[in-house]
Computed example of a mutant assay.
Amino acid sequence: MPPYISLPEGSVRLLRLLPNSDQNSPIECRLITFPALDSGSTHPYESLSYVWGSDDSKRPIYVDRNELYVTANLHVALSHLRHCLLERMLWVDAICINQSDNVEKGQQVQLMAKIYSKASRVIVWLGEAADGSDQALEAIRAAADEQPANFPVDKTNWGAILTLLDRGWFERIWVLQEVAAARHVLIKCGPAEIDGLPHKRRSIPA
């Protein structure tokens, strides 16, 4: 477990997700303390909105060269977010908050809305690709780009969309705060992604 240092009041930790061209290599990260949430502008980090998932199958990552076990869902999310050449700056609650310090957890929960609103983007991670999720995201993307009356959605697409909407992320209460506070949203399911704001799509190579 990384040696967490006490946070100054109003500060957060950010996670530097280190690049690697080998998708099977261990996930390596660094933590930095970031004190500037009270400034008026957004900041060059992305906040991750996701479901923690079961504790039964945790997997290791390395934070400041120390082993930390995270849920399988978070591990696969970081694997998909890791770039082959560039660092990525993230805020991820399970790692950036010292989960063994109840006082810190309470203080950081009070900052959650600000953390998500100051991020340059909120990444919604729905999980691995399965049950036609790629098809569902493409149908949603296409429908957003067309006049709804002119874009028929067939039964197969409807089935895939309904299955996607049945995922655990949509059952979380916290998502209302995380997405409502976001200035920009990227929705990811496995390697597929769509911009959460219609007509402003952008992809980030993995």
Results as ranks from 00 to 15, higher is better:
residue 193 E to R: 11
residue 164 L to D: 03
residue 101 D to G: 05
residue 28 E to R: 15
residue 9 E to Q: 13
residue 29 C to Y: 00
residue 37 L to Y: 05
residue 25 S to N: 04
residue 98 N to M: 00
residue 133 S to W: 05
residue 169 W to N: 03
residue 15 L to W: 00
residue 77 A to E: 03
residue 34 F to K: 00
residue 44 P to D: 07
residue 139 A to K: 10
residue 116 Y to M: 03
residue 101 D to K: 04
residue 105 K to W: 00
residue 23 Q to H: 11
residue 31 L to I: 02
residue 101 D to F: 01
residue 138 E to Q: 15
residue 144 A to F: 09
residue 149 A to R: 12
residue 128 E to A: 05
residue 173 I to P: 10
residue 172 R to T: 11
residue 66 N to D: 14
residue 142 A to K: 15
residue 19 P to D: 04
residue 59 R to L: 12
residue 50 Y to M: 01
residue 121 R to Q: 11
residue 94 A to G: 08
residue 158 W to L: 15
residue 111 L to Y: 01
residue 205 P to A: 14
residue 39 S to N: 06
residue 186 L to Y: 02
residue 164 L to I: 03
residue 183 R to K: 15
residue 108 Q to G: 01
residue 197 L to D: 11
residue 164 L to G: 04
residue 51 V to Y: 02
residue 163 T to A: 14
residue 172 R to A: 10
residue 132 G to C: 10
residue 70 V to M: 06
residue 155 K to T: 13
residue 157 N to C: 14
residue 103 V to F: 09
residue 202 R to G: 13
residue 182 A to Y: 09
residue 50 Y to F: 01
residue 114 K to N: 05
residue 105 K to R: 14
residue 194 I to A: 10
residue 131 D to G: 08
residue 117 S to G: 06
residue 109 V to K: 04
residue 21 S to F: 07
residue 61 I to F: 04
residue 108 Q to H: 05
residue 164 L to Q: 03
residue 186 L to T: 13
residue 60 P to D: 06
residue 160 A to D: 14
residue 176 L to S: 11
residue 152 P to A: 10
residue 173 I to S: 10
residue 47 S to L: 04
residue 83 H to A: 13
residue 134 D to K: 09
residue 44 P to W: 05
residue 196 G to P: 02
residue 18 L to W: 08
residue 149 A to H: 13
residue 172 R to H: 10
residue 92 V to I: 09
residue 111 L to E: 01
residue 37 L to K: 03
residue 188 K to C: 15
residue 146 E to H: 15
residue 162 L to D: 11
residue 168 G to R: 15
residue 175 V to Q: 06
residue 6 S to L: 10
residue 69 Y to P: 06
residue 28 E to F: 12
residue 102 N to Q: 14
residue 133 S to L: 05
residue 133 S to I: 11
residue 79 S to D: 06
residue 183 R to P: 04
residue 76 V to F: 14
residue 173 I to H: 11
residue 173 I to A: 12
residue 200 K to F: 11
residue 168 G to M: 13
residue 49 S to M: 00
residue 149 A to L: 13
residue 194 I to T: 13
residue 50 Y to E: 01
residue 8 P to K: 07
residue 43 H to R: 09
residue 108 Q to W: 03
residue 118 K to V: 05
residue 142 A to Y: 11
residue 38 D to G: 05
residue 187 I to E: 09
residue 123 I to A: 03
residue 68 L to K: 08
residue 34 F to M: 06
residue 45 Y to P: 01
residue 105 K to E: 00
residue 90 L to H: 02
residue 129 A to N: 14
residue 107 Q to R: 13
residue 42 T to N: 07
residue 23 Q to L: 09
residue 97 I to K: 08
residue 10 G to Q: 04
residue 107 Q to Y: 08
residue 8 P to C: 09
residue 148 P to G: 12
residue 34 F to T: 02
residue 77 A to H: 03
residue 102 N to S: 15
residue 178 E to T: 05
residue 140 I to S: 06
residue 113 A to E: 13
residue 166 D to Y: 06
residue 162 L to S: 12
residue 8 P to T: 04
residue 135 Q to G: 12
residue 138 E to T: 12
